[in-house]
Write a protein that binds this DNA or RNA. Structure first.
Lengths: 216, 216
DNA sequence: ATTGCTATTGTACATCCGTTCAACAGGACG
DNA sequence: CGTCCTGTTGAACGGATGTACAATAGCAAT
């Protein structure tokens, strides 16, 4: 018996646990990006992943288990951007360049991080994960700042300055994601550099003369 | 019949609509601060306000109506801090001083703002409100920066710098609220000033070294 | 006191939530 | 062809959620 032409519903698809887990994590990420933590429900996620309702419990134990996995998945790209595979630690200009890539400046990523930060307050395990990422971010930034200061022949408190620069980058990201009409990612980067260069001297950033005019 | 001594439940309390509305808004604020948007439910809010389940619908039409009111209530203190009653516009040092007051640096206020920012994505009306506040904030900051630059005899792009300084302040606030172990509010203020002074010159900020002012 | 107005209450209801679980389907191996 | 094994399904359940609504209780005016 041939299948009716209009409908071809493959009701049963079998994947390896790793593949299926990743499918669910990515679906969770999309759902979170679209509607925030309120939309992060079993029904929404499973519909997004084209899976049945029982699968999240089966693969992650509970919805919170999936959320923890989503958390780690959201962190990975950030961690990956912190070190170049093989070529060593990125310098400050490169670090800032990456931070202001337009793909990060989306409403989706804002929704994801608002939800995850909100969960930190409830789930202490996530706070631990957050600290791991933050420590890595801070150490990388501190090293980059130290090298930049040395190259410019300046003395700075690299450890404190690292925290400040991270806050500045995140703050610019936050404001721009909440209301994109405030500025473009390129303007945000220029604004960031405008505050850093008086302290560290000019950085060799590609496309630096974007908003500030050709010469002084 | 005299009331039993152990229990005195006044089941029926009557308030004017304005008073009751404010009670519900404040209860909503507390609930939001305690558990984020997930805890913002009819049952939680009414229990917190010691009111019955029907009251939110009666006074605000729906739960979203209450959330909009909560939104406005959360904005008011920020707006109030932007101008001194009678004495004119605050200067830059005063503005920064207020931004880093420890009462703002709490998990509760973080939860509130994470929830509200998340709602902006869904409710366009809230985006309009947000822009009103941001415009006021930005204008005040721009004026303060322009006066500070003039006093220091420096030339700056006050409009762009205002956006940057706001982002820096908010970024420091965000990082510190997510994980208070990163720094204290006083350190956050110092870090903020460390990035601003190279551009604008030293600001006459009261309590720059954590002195609360002379005795009297 | 009586009446009218309205803030308030608590139940009812339809929907949605997360989790459990028995049954099922597709390979792998003999 | 038969038999495990395991990923998958979808119904079922108890509980929570937002709203509607009829009944109730205080308060002011008469």
């Amino acid at each position: 018996m041939s299948r009716p032409p209009g409908k071809a519903p493959p009701k049963f698809r079998r994947y390896s646990p790793e593949v299926r887990a990743q499918m669910l994590v990515e679906a969770g990420l999309r759902v979170l990006g679209r509607g925030g933590i309120t939309a992060f429900t079993i029904d929404n996620i499973c519909a997004e992943a084209a899976a049945s309702r029982g699968l999240i419990t089966h693969h992650f134990g509970s919805k919170d288990g999936l959320l923890a996995a989503v958390y780690r998945a959201a962190y990975r790209p950030v961690l990956d951007s912190l070190d170049d595979a093989g070529t060593g630690a990125p310098d400050l200009g490169e670090l800032i360049e990456r931070s202001f890539r337009p793909d990060n400046f989306t409403r989706e990523s804002l929704n994801i991080w608002l939800a995850l930060w909100g969960e930190i307050a409830v789930n202490p395990q996530l706070l631990t994960e957050h600290r791991k990422l933050y420590a890595a971010y801070r150490a990388t930034m501190e090293g980059a700042i130290r090298r930049a200061a040395q190259a410019a022949g300046r003395r700075v408190e690299a450890d404190r300055l690292a925290v400040t620069v991270i806050s500045l980058v995140d703050g610019l990201w936050l404001e721009q994601c909440i209301d994109p009409s405030v500025m473009t990612p390129a303007e945000a980067k220029a604004a960031c550099l405008a505050l850093i260069t008086p302290v560290l001297g000019p950085l060799g950033v590609a496309g630096e003369g974007n908003g500030t005019g050709p010469n002084s």
